[in-house]
């Protein structure tokens, strides 16, 4: 594999509040190769969105503090970039699409004006902006793009709005697309369409995608590799297929058992006992041990490391066998 386009090493992010400090992300490391799709899966509050925003230093500082670690884009450290380079990175190299398409578009401007703004920001060489807008709207599957681009966001359906967001992100021709729960706010049928679109675009444009999701079900469709996050830590990092067939970490296993699967006879879904720990009040040792069916006596003392147990498969649990 060639040099990865994005490298994250030992990223630690804290939120410093007036009365306490919350460890939102601890020691996260992963790489994204060119053309690869990595999915980060986790529950609400597991730190996945925070990680995604930190990639271009979009987190508000304070309260967020990037306490340690390194983020390298194309070999260059994001941490030391000045404001001008950061602006080029945001949108131009790493583009985002967010969860709520209906609120991510500015209600007072037309689609044309918003995509045009993105193109003028990052691609000065484009002379015929309108043609470029039509091209990308067409690429994301919007019918009659020349007419639709004069619409305001409220005139479009949720699925269309998300397509517009994707077109806007792609129009800047980024190297990495960060999709932060792109389908969460959409109907199931529209979800499938948007995922299909992302998969098709990924193949056509050879673009890297970082997909943030809480839905293990959509991971198999699109991701090459998966990072599972729990309580601010990556607990398992593995090729998608292998992970779905044979999850190694007890949390991933529990997560899979709690998702209904087609084709399986009516088994009772298994909820994970207990609750997600409150932010900032993580249990000592392994953060999953109070809910873990395989917990041993020393799990509450020693914090496990993320270890490569098989080629390409990393697990943060000494008892994964």
């Amino acid at each position: 594999m060639s040099q990865p386009i994005l490298q994250v090493r030992n990223l630690c992010i804290d939120f410093v509040l007036e009365d306490r400090t919350i460890e939102a992300v601890k020691d996260a490391s992963f790489e994204l190769a060119a053309g690869e799709t990595l999915a980060i899966v986790g529950e609400s509050g597991s730190g996945k969105s925070v990680t995604a925003l930190a990639l271009t230093r979009l987190l508000p500082v304070p309260p967020a503090v990037i306490k340690g670690g390194e983020i390298l884009f194309d070999g260059e450290s994001v941490m030391t970039m000045d404001a001008a380079r950061l602006r080029k990175l945001r949108g131009g190299k790493i583009a985002y699409i967010f969860q709520e398409p209906s609120t991510s578009l500015n209600p007072v401007y037309t689609v044309r004006s918003q995509i045009g703004e993105a193109i003028r920001l990052h691609r000065r060489d484009v002379t015929d902006v309108d043609a470029e807008i039509v091209r990308w709207l067409d690429a994301v599957g919007i019918v009659d793009p020349a007419a639709r681009m004069h619409d305001y966001p409220h005139q479009l359906s949720g699925g269309m709005q998300q397509r517009v967001m994707i077109a806007m992100a792609l129009a800047c021709q980024p190297d990495v697309l960060v999709a932060d729960e792109p389908t969460t706010a959409l109907d199931v049928t529209i979800q499938a369409q948007i995922l299909e679109l992302l998969r098709e675009l990924k193949q056509r444009l050879r673009m890297s995608i970082l997909l943030i999701t809480h839905n293990l079900g959509i991971v198999g469709d699109i991701a090459d590799r998966v990072a599972v996050m729990y309580a601010g830590q990556i607990v398992e990092l593995s090729p998608a297929r292998a992970l779905l067939q044979r999850p190694l970490h007890p949390y991933t296993q529990a997560l899979m058992n709690s998702v209904p699967q087609l084709g399986h006879e009516l088994e009772r879904l298994q909820a994970i006992p207990g609750n997600v720990p409150n932010l900032g009040q993580f249990p000592s040792g392994c953060r999953f041990h109070p809910r873990c069916p395989k917990a041993q006596s020393d799990c509450s003392q020693k914090a496990p490391e993320l270890v490569e147990v098989e080629p390409g498969r990393w697990v943060r649990c000494p008892y994964w066998k």
């Binding site: 979009l58 080029k88 945001r90 949108g91 967010f98 800047c172």
Partner: peptide, 8 residues
């Protein structure tokens, strides 16, 4: 947020 993520 989206505008900031766009590098505006």
């Amino acid at each position: 947020q989206a505008a900031r993520a766009l590098g505006q």
